[in-house]
Design a protein around this nucleic acid. Sequence first.
RNA 1: UGGCCUAUGGUGUAACUGGCAACACGUCUGAUUUUGGUUCAGAAGAGUCUAGGUUCGAGCCCUAGUAGGCCAACCA
Length: 557
Amino acid sequence: MENEKKESLNFIEQMIDNDLKSGKHQAIQTRFPPEPNGYLHIGHAKSICLNFGLAEKFGGKCNLRFDDTNPEKEDVEYVDSIKSNIEWLGFKWDGEHYASDYFAQLYEFAVALIKKGKAYVDDLSQEEFNAIKGTPTQPGKESPFRSRSVEENLQLFAEMKDGKYQNGEKVLRAKIDMSSPNMHMRDPILYRIKHVEHHRTANEWCIYPTYDFAHGQSDSIEKVTHSLCTLEFEVHRPLYEWLISELEIFPSKQTEFARLNLSYTIVSKRKLLELVEEGHVAGWDDPRMPTISGIRRRGFTPDAIKKFIKKVGVARRDGITDVALLEHAVREDLNKKTNRVFGILDPVKLVITNWPEDKEEVLTAVNNPEDEAAGTRDMLFGREVYIDRGDFLENPPSPRKWYRLGPEREVRLKYAYIIKCTGFDKDENGEITTIYAEYDPETRSGQDTSGKKVKGTLGWVSVKHAVNAEIRMYDRLFHTENLNDIEDDFKNHLNPNSLEVNTRAVLEGSLKDAKVGDQVQFERVGYFRVDEDTTADKLVFNRTITLRDNWEKQKGK
RNA sequence: UGGCCUAUGGUGUAACUGGCAACACGUCUGAUUUUGGUUCAGAAGAGUCUAGGUUCGAGCCCUAGUAGGCCAACCA
């Protein structure tokens, strides 16, 4: 209660807090405004968590609004994926809106501006206008069509709407200031002609509003109190405010925050599209992709993503967040939720020579030491088991450095017995084919009367009950830390080893009925999720992420 | 020869609105551990871009520099 350490608010929360306390707003209204022209990625997750999170935190509402004002690039396919991604993250929108729902209203707004003498139809071509537009350091000149009468503008604009002109023949511009140092105030385009079918309004319109004339107006129509967007829209704010002010409509307020940049990761719809189209990945939902669909398939959870976004925070300076933070959030979440099982990625057979040929024993294994409610399971133990090749060394370093198996070394097979390595076979290539060991009957887990202590505990899979699976082991898609800093093609920085398909892995028998979406931890290895490519006779797992590995670190020293 | 924004440990954020810099990740020790995981204890690491100024006192305010970002799409 009073003891709660007051968590500090970010600058947006402070603003909202003030607006609520001062009575400027009774409640807040936010919105997440994607353009349905691509798949959502981890960067969008920030905006989603922000907009929906703020509404939750301050008891307001958050709409989902598709900014669909450019029919050439937009498609229902994207609308559907965006909606399911947001739902998967666990957010519910209040209103579902489309900028295209407002086309009629927007048209009226344009007419109102024309009547006020604040907008005009311009006949200049794109090239012609650019020639007089000036540059950031030089003022522009006014279009010769700038002084048309209101009546003429009204008629021309109506004709534009009625399809009398071809694409690019005319545009509607706001009449602001051709010498403004802000390029967006130099008579920006409000409407352009596009004889293109729209994914929702079909051929009802052949003129479409631009972002600047749709976004703020849509915000206003929906009575959005806090319109959040990324830093690059900062220069649009004066125009955003000018339009709302001239139209005398609800004063939504735009506030910008820094977008999310992640190390070793591309967060750009355009570039991600390129990866998909050129086949560098298997699709938008390839588990290596930073798309919501991709990381979901990979095994990242909504909770992990939300926690991560929370840890990242919100500010106005742009930087680059370390993926390690994301990975930490994922491990933290999965550690608590996921059941432990045995999975051996690189199996080698181990024969317990003093174990009777056909004897099997039932062992009890803990499903999740972090969650007692997860219970236990039975495992069958026998004479032959698989262990990981990496857990055996022919010539191991001192027992202080190497806890695992080696000639004459002892380890415990988890939940079973302590074994001592008595020998091994090698093939002509020098590869170890079988390891031999003897178990100590006094050392059964839970009933150990031997007093023995071993430092190493190994996972194992009974040969008789082993299940085969294909394991897709992912690594980062790019090997360059800051992909914003490069001048060459980002595809030169692709990690050629971002996917390794492992077909030799063996899993414990309990996994034979694993279902798509199931997530587990292979003890001492990492977190894995059953992929949708799984079929009745083929199990496919994605490696979500490895466990932290201090041993691996030490080896490097 | 423009305008706007930003500048705090390696990284991301804090600092109750001026009172000698905190948290998280990462890194490094050590303990515990039938996961070299988890957990726990601890350590190193910035004196807040620079220079002036206001003030008893500035990371917070002012000025000037410097550095980085954004802006000249009929994209959003």
